[in-house]
């Protein structure tokens, strides 16, 4: 079981507005020198100290994997979220000290692919920025289809088109010319791997189309940055640590566990990787599963929960932590 990775102290070197809703942050290591290496598609978990609350949100590293003197992330402001992105947008200034996790890659390039077909929706562009640098260097064929609302709302599309030319296709939803996923998937050569990052419904739609066209699971890759759902506050008992922990409305179960100084494993913090899987010892109430990891049978059995995104409603929940 992975222990919580050691975080790295960094200074915010620069905050750049990219679109009305997106800002880019550049972090340099406080200790100087170089940051840990990462590969295209990797993310880091940024620690935000908002008063007494500590939030940890994952963001794709979007700089070049070859330039390790700084990390860059882009954050889209989501007004009525739990406040992680609002905190980044409104409170974080150049010069601030923060902490980030060593990079983790759950969306790595498929080295045996004969072609990479990359589909991005909005801020879902971020993991592809570093992936494309690596694919381009390795002279591996790729094609990016980037869905944005309109020219002003899509971050980076101009830069990317300039850098990669025809390999970057922009689809503007407001112009009525959305992306025709089926037409696109039908013509892909054998050995193509599909990577999709964007809103949940986009990922699900693309997967359903691909499966319907006979694409094998091995060739489908997705990354979703799902903010943990908010919900009614509840209490949880951690049996091995003998602690009772309160989980607030805007706090995830994982964050509450961390705030109680109990070590809990995680990687994606988005309900996708399975790393945070925790045993449910007793449950008098209803588990609210918000993850994409547990199978229908596992959910029905009610013996496991993914604390990074899932919650509880009822009288008593006891976890094996």
């Amino acid at each position: 079981m992975a222990v919580r990775p050691q975080s790295i102290k960094v200074r915010v070197a620069e905050v750049v507005p990219v679109t009305p809703l997106v800002k880019r942050f550049r972090f340099v290591p406080l200790a100087g020198g170089l940051l840990p290496a990462f590969s295209g598609g990797a993310h880091t978990v940024v620690e935000m100290h908002d008063g007494a609350v500590v939030r940890r949100n994952p963001y794709s590293l979007m700089g070049s994997p070859d330039e390790l003197d700084s990390y860059q992330i882009s954050v889209r402001k989501v007004e009525d979220s739990r406040g992680g992105s609002v905190f980044m947008h409104e409170r974080v200034k150049a010069g601030d000290e923060m902490a980030v996790s060593p990079p983790v890659n759950l969306f790595a390039i498929a080295w045996d692919a004969r072609k990479h077909l990359l589909l991005a929706g909005g801020i879902g562009i971020t993991p592809f920025v570093s992936q494309m640098i690596q694919l381009d260097r390795s002279e591996m064929p790729f094609e990016l289809h980037y869905c944005i609302r309109n020219d002003d709302r899509g971050p980076y599309w101009r830069d990317l088109q300039q850098r990669y030319g025809r390999r970057v296709q922009v689809h503007r939803a407001e112009s009525g010319l959305g992306m025709d996923v089926e037409a696109l998937l039908v013509m892909q050569p054998l050995g193509t791997h599909l990577f999709v990052c964007g809103p949940g419904p986009m990922i699900e739609g693309v997967y359903a189309t691909a499966r319907g066209l006979g694409w094998p699971e091995e060739n489908l890759h997705s990354e979703r940055f799902q903010a943990p759902a908010t919900g009614a506050a509840f209490d949880v008992v951690l049996r091995r640590s003998s602690k009772r922990v309160h989980v607030g409305t805007h706090e995830s179960l994982l964050e509450a566990i961390e705030a109680a100084d109990v070590e809990a494993p995680y990687l994606c913090r988005g309900g996708a990787c399975g790393q945070c899987e925790t045993g449910v010892l007793a449950c008098d109430g209803r588990l609210i599963h918000n993850d994409h990891y547990l199978s229908a049978e596992e959910r029905a059995a009610g013996r496991k929960i993914m604390p990074c995104v899932s919650r509880f409603e009822g009288r008593e929940l006891v976890l094996d932590l």
Binding site: L185, V186, M187, Q188, P189, L190, G191, T192, L213, G214, W215, N219
Partner: peptide, 10 residues
């Protein structure tokens, strides 16, 4: 056959 095939080939 494989060389001419597209994705969706089993």
């Amino acid at each position: 056959l494989l060389g001419a095939a597209r994705m969706g080939t089993q």
